[in-house]
Design a protein around this nucleic acid. Sequence first.
DNA 1: TTCGTTCTCTTGAATCATTCATGTTTGAGG
DNA 2: CCTCAAACATGAATGATTCAAGAGAACGAA
Lengths: 153, 153
Amino acid sequence: MTASGNRGTTTAAEELRAAGLRVTAARVAILDTVRAGDHLGVDAIAEGARERVGHVSLQAVYEALHAMTGKGIVRRIEPAGSPARFEGRVGDNHHHLVCRSCGAVADVDCAVGNSPCLEPISDAGFLVDEADVTFWGLCPACREAAPPRQTAG
Amino acid sequence: MTASGNRGTTTAAEELRAAGLRVTAARVAILDTVRAGDHLGVDAIAEGARERVGHVSLQAVYEALHAMTGKGIVRRIEPAGSPARFEGRVGDNHHHLVCRSCGAVADVDCAVGNSPCLEPISDAGFLVDEADVTFWGLCPACREAAPPRQTAG
DNA sequence: TTCGTTCTCTTGAATCATTCATGTTTGAGG
DNA sequence: CCTCAAACATGAATGATTCAAGAGAACGAA
């Protein structure tokens, strides 16, 4: 295990270099933070990066995340009504569960085989390249805090 | 045919009253605009409402749309990276096609039967009540303007 | 019809995420 | 070591949305 939070196949530095991005302390820290975190927002990523390498400006974080998203080494999700979040899981076609109450995000594997959701019945002439599925509901914790009416009566 | 743009079953005034909202000129105009339009944004709705009844403040539009969304008589969609849009089609479980280039939005009926997408494989303990599916791609117009590489080579 | 309560509307200011602008620093090849 | 584009920092700007407080209007009750 390396010192840079390598969790899986490649180190952050290798990923960056392979993507044609320069390997800077800030970007390594940002990518490590995204990978170690769980659907973090920009502020949380900035904080995590700072814990690793001292000072990193918020703009550098935005810039880096934009570049990494463009290269496909991080994925950006943006549930309606909340700021953008980023995750390190890319390549697989997974979707998300979002809690209406606390905003928590959890991954869900794509249900129907490979890409069921990737093909709308009628595409209205659109050239579709991605399906973005978000399931809305209450997370376990919020379910308990505000039980809907499951067995009441 | 009434004078209020009734398109289907009920008039805007009736819908508002049935939902427990007061019937004001502004709200009737806003609801009519949303129903007549095609996934309009807040500004466009405000303009449309003004064309019908003179002056309507932007805040009144936000307030009204919020109330109507809460009552389920309009639906709010918010494709990642763009401001909120509203539509009058509610009750059916339809999804959306969004153009990456121009932002155009088109409806798609839910493919798999009633609510295929409504049940994630693993719900991670979440109490899911809605599935929000967005298909990303290029609309016919943008496809032509910037042909990807369909038969190139 | 008149009255009163409460919802709705207006004006104006504030918030928050994100982007733009500009100058400085630095990674990486030559 | 040198050069230059990529990346970074600081600071300001933008744009959608929300908050605040008082004026106005809808609707049920009297």
